[in-house]
Structure formats: structure tokens, C-alpha cells
């Protein structure tokens, strides 16, 4: 089979998997939160979430009606041929998924306000490229909901305040967001690089599974500290009160300019949808997040 055909098929399958089935780590985190939540209102919400996750699987329907803005992360082996065709191919896969899954048409021209109707448009689906060695391709899709996207923030902090300033920035962001991003949330925190780099790192950090802390023990400790802090806010599931405000906190960073401390917080809602597959040089496909495929 042609690479383009395989990529289109895999792109379609990933979209379908992502919007219908939550990754196992997210499901486990939600179950654990349900078992541990002490607020009655919060528990009712978590129960509804778990029921909904199960119903979605049973009826093969999208978990949430907002099937998001379609974002791909492509890790392309330097030896892979026809990389210039991938964008077009993933656009096709998105069109097909919009009709067949179906996905809600979520791509609007910001000047005319016209909805393209098929989840595509200038730069959408958006593709984040990374070139790695080897000759396989790893494709990840993140259908990103609007409710949680609307509270993402980036800021230029005061370098002198260091990590303290960062902690305050994150806690304040979570409190300001309140019920809006459909808590419990996953927080991606990006630091350094520049304004654009920090928000990109923050969003990409959302792809890391919840049971994988940062490999650097000091950063893992900071993730844990911020995780515990935001769960002390009392915002709770859906902002109705409780101790489950975040399911996880993931940090990534780049070195910074001496005069700048860029920082960003990307919010992911409980419907933390992502799916990844690897295509090797022989065209063999391995689904990494949704292994039953």
C-alpha cells in the first residue's frame, strides 16, 4: 500500500479512537478520583463522567459533543519518503472523520465567521512536526476542546521571582478558570524558550500519560507540589466543589533568556482525548494508546 493511503487510514482511525475512547491512564485517574472524592456534588459529577465514558464506548459515539480543533503531532523519521504529502493526507482523514464518526464541524474563518463544515481550513488541522532519526512515523492526534482551550494562558513572569512566581501564576490561572474548562483538568505547564515556545511546550506536555511523572526527579517533585496545591482550591468536578480539580500536572521547559521568564499553562478537560500510532517502513501499523485496535 502507498504511504499516503496508510497515513490517511491511520489518521482516520486515530481520530475515531480519540473521540470515542479515553486513554486508559485518563480512565484510571477518573475512577480513582471518583473513589476518593468526598464532596457529594463532586462525586455525582464524576459518576456522570464515568457513565458517559462507558456509554460512549458502548454506542461508539464521541465522548463529548465538542470534538475539538484537530491537532496532530508528527514524529517523522528522517528516512521516510513523501513527507510533503502528509499534511494533505491528514486533512483528508479529518474530512472523512468529520462525516463518518461524525465530528462536530469546528473550524471557522475568523474574518467571515463562516464554518468550513469539515474541520479544515487555513492551517487546520494543525500539524506539529518533529524530525527524528529512523524511518518510521509516529502520528498523534489531540482533538482539543474549546472550553478548556479558552482558559489557556501564557505570561512573561518576573525572572527574579523564579519558581515561586511560576507557582503563583499556575494557581491563579486555575482559580480564574474555575468551572470553565470542565474540571477535573490536566495541566500542561511550559517554561522558558520564549512566549511561543512556552505555550507549545505546555500543550505538548498534555500528551504525556498521567502515570508518567517527569523523568527529572526535581521537576517531578514540582509537578506533585503544584498538583496538590491546585487540588486544595476546592473548585472540584465541574466547579461544584470538591477535592478533584486536577487529574495531573505535567511540566516541560526550555532554557530562557536572562531577562525573560516565559511561562504558560495549557488546560485539558477531563475528556482528555489523544491517540497515537506508529507506522514502520514496511507499512506495519502499531496503535500505541488504543491497543485493542
Amino acid at each position: 500500500m502507498e504511504t499516503a493511503n496508510i497515513v490517511e487510514k491511520v489518521g482516520f482511525n486515530l481520530l475515531k479512537q480519540a473521540v470515542i475512547y479515553l486513554p486508559e491512564d485518563v480512565k484510571h485517574a477518573l475512577q480513582k478520583a471518583y473513589a476518593e472524592e468526598t464532596s457529594e456534588a463532586g462525586k455525582t459529577q464524576l459518576k456522570a463522567i464515568l457513565d458517559n465514558v462507558e456509554l460512549a464506548e458502548r454506542h461508539q459515539a464521541p465522548i463529548c459533543q465538542d470534538t475539538g480543533t484537530i491537532i496532530f503531532y508528527v514524529k517523522a523519521g528522517a528516512g521516510v519518503k513523501n513527507l510533503d504529502k502528509i499534511e494533505e493526507t491528514l486533512t483528508k482523514a479529518t474530512r472523512r472523520a468529520t462525516v463518518e464518526v461524525p465530528l462536530r464541524p469546528n473550524s471557522v474563518n475568523p474574518f467571515t465567521q463562516k464554518n468550513s463544515g469539515d474541520n479544515t481550513g487555513r492551517l487546520i488541522p494543525y500539524i506539529n512536526w518533529e524530525i527524528v532519526s529512523g524511518d518510521s512515523i509516529e502520528l498523534t492526534v489531540m482533538p482539543k476542546g474549546g472550553g478548556s482551550e479558552n482558559v489557556c494562558i501564557s505570561g512573561m513572569l518576573v525572572p527574579g521571582e523564579g519558581i515561586k512566581g511560576l507557582k503563583k501564576f499556575v494557581v491563579d490561572a486555575v482559580i480564574r478558570a474555575g468551572a470553565k474548562p470542565c474540571p477535573p483538568n490536566i495541566l500542561g505547564i511550559g517554561i522558558g524558550g520564549g512566549a511561543d515556545i512556552s505555550i507549545k511546550l505546555a500543550k505538548k506536555a498534555l500528551l504525556r500519560p498521567l502515570n508518567e511523572p517527569n523523568p527529572d526527579p526535581e521537576i517531578a517533585e514540582l509537578e506533585k507540589e503544584i498538583f496538590e496545591a491546585v487540588n486544595m482550591t476546592g473548585i472540584g468536578p465541574m466547579g461544584l466543589g470538591g477535592k478533584t480539580t486536577a487529574l495531573g500536572v505535567h511540566i516541560d521547559y526550555a532554557y530562557r533568556h536572562p531577562a525573560s521568564y516565559p511561562a504558560a499553562v495549557a488546560f485539558q478537560c477531563w475528556a482528555a482525548r489523544r491517540a497515537t500510532a506508529r507506522i514502520n517502513s514496511a507499512g506495519k501499523v502499531e496503535y500505541l494508546t488504543h491497543r485493542m485496535w
Binding site: K168, V171, E225
Partner: peptide, 23 residues
């Protein structure tokens, strides 16, 4: 209004969090 009640509590908790984080 439950949301407003929660918001009020969150504001109170914020001070405790700041303290815990040494802010």
C-alpha cells in the same frame, strides 16, 4: 448560587495555598 459559594470558598483556600507554597 452554589457556584458563587464555591468561588467564595476558593478565595479563602487561596490564602492557605499561598502559605503552603511560601508565596
Amino acid at each position: 448560587n452554589l457556584f458563587m459559594e464555591v468561588q467564595k470558598k476558593v478565595e479563602e483556600n487561596k490564602q492557605r495555598i499561598y502559605q503552603k507554597l511560601g508565596l
